[in-house]
Design a protein around this nucleic acid. Structure first.
Lengths: 201, 201
DNA sequence: CTGGACTGTCAACACGTGTTGGCCTACGGT
DNA sequence: ACCGTAGGCCAACACGTGTTGACAGTCCAG
């Protein structure tokens, strides 16, 4: 860790941290890293390959992100932007959630990267745990009958949603890839709905 | 590949392939490999570590399994031993399947190994695809209303079953680990049941 | 114009990996 | 009792990895 902190040369009080000339390179590295981690997982996504994709020297990665771990940590920031279940029809929450997750997974490779890495890398696994625990559990708490069951219900939803991502975006199992969005929502929506709102069986 | 084929020294016509003196070592390697692949994934499960666990020299692994790929291929043989849905109450097939899968995942680490490896290794992914396609689809064909939908329904089941394994045995998400077997069966059983038998939504 | 910081390149290091071949030991059929 | 051969260990190779430091161009404040 312990990245070099460049002192803001001009306005020190502004909120934006004074754009640097190397910002383009920084984001190029980050984009390449996200894609490589998503495609190859942690070990096989080498710094040399990432640097080649970003068309810079491997040592730049070290300069800007300190280490491979630091680079991956910089990729990890994810906000699921889950909707507040209080604001929608309780009968629709399952379908809305599934649809929202499909959006998230397809908008860029961050979630695929974290999933692929989390399976073999401890830090990635903890991050994935944290994301779903911190962001999905509150939704469950507002949607399920007994708030005390929120963690269990969130975990059940996670099992189905991550299972879909696994089969569709990571393992690329044929029929799971071929399914259309509306079909997925129609099939998985009621499942998630039930995990959230059904009485404890 | 191309393992050395030791000529059977004694009975050449017997069905059993004439036990070798090194069989103990062979299975020790295989056991250690399965555990390591399950715990660490493909890249981080090094031949040296596997050999250390099996208390033999790394070169023995090469001699008996040709290469790391060959070793992993030897670990891959899995028979899910799925029950024939024709033989049970159509109302129970979901619960029976979920229960059966819990048995499979907990009996040894093979499935965890294949899942962990399949996420980053192409051969592992294809193997996982094959297992679920070849063994789960026939079950779906016998259980679902329109046999033509069997692949889709098998994939849906796989998404939920693999998702459970992912959250419970790989990522070890707290609430998913804490759930008891009967609870899991009660929650996921109806889901699998619906994926198999419900009319296309 | 000039000095210092920033951005980038190059070559190298130390290390762990999969893999190989040579050597010694000890079993077991003849 | 013998000796071929299977079983096992050791040392080494070639390679790719993350990481480091020295060096050169480039921008901008003073």
């Amino acid at each position: 860790m312990a990245l070099k902190e460049h002192p803001a040369p001009t306005s020190a009080a502004t909120d934006a941290p004074a754009p640097r000339r190397s910002d383009a390179t920084r984001t190029a590295i980050l984009d390449a890293a996200r894609a490589r981690f998503a495609a190859d997982g942690y070990e096989r996504a080498t710094i040399r390959a990432i640097a080649r994709d970003a068309r810079i020297d491997p040592s730049m990665v070290m300069r800007y992100y300190g280490s491979k771990d630091g680079l991956f940590a910089a990729v990890l920031d994810v906000d699921l932007r889950l909707p507040d279940p209080a604001g929608l029809d309780p009968r629709d929450v399952g379908r809305v959630l599934v649809s929202h997750f499909l959006d998230l997974w397809e908008e860029n490779g961050v979630l695929t990267a974290i999933l692929r890495v989390g399976v073999t890398n401890q830090a990635g696994a903890e991050r994935l745990q944290g994301i779903f625990k911190d962001q999905l559990t509150p939704v469950a708490r507002r949607a399920c009958p007994d708030p005390e069951q929120a963690p269990v219900r969130a975990a059940l939803c996670a099992s189905q949603l991550l299972g879909l991502a696994l089969t569709r975006y990571v393992l690329r199992i044929g029929p799971a890839v071929a399914l259309s969005r509306p079909e997925i929502v129609a099939w998985l929506g009621p499942t998630v709905q039930r995990y959230l709102t059904a009485p404890h069986p």
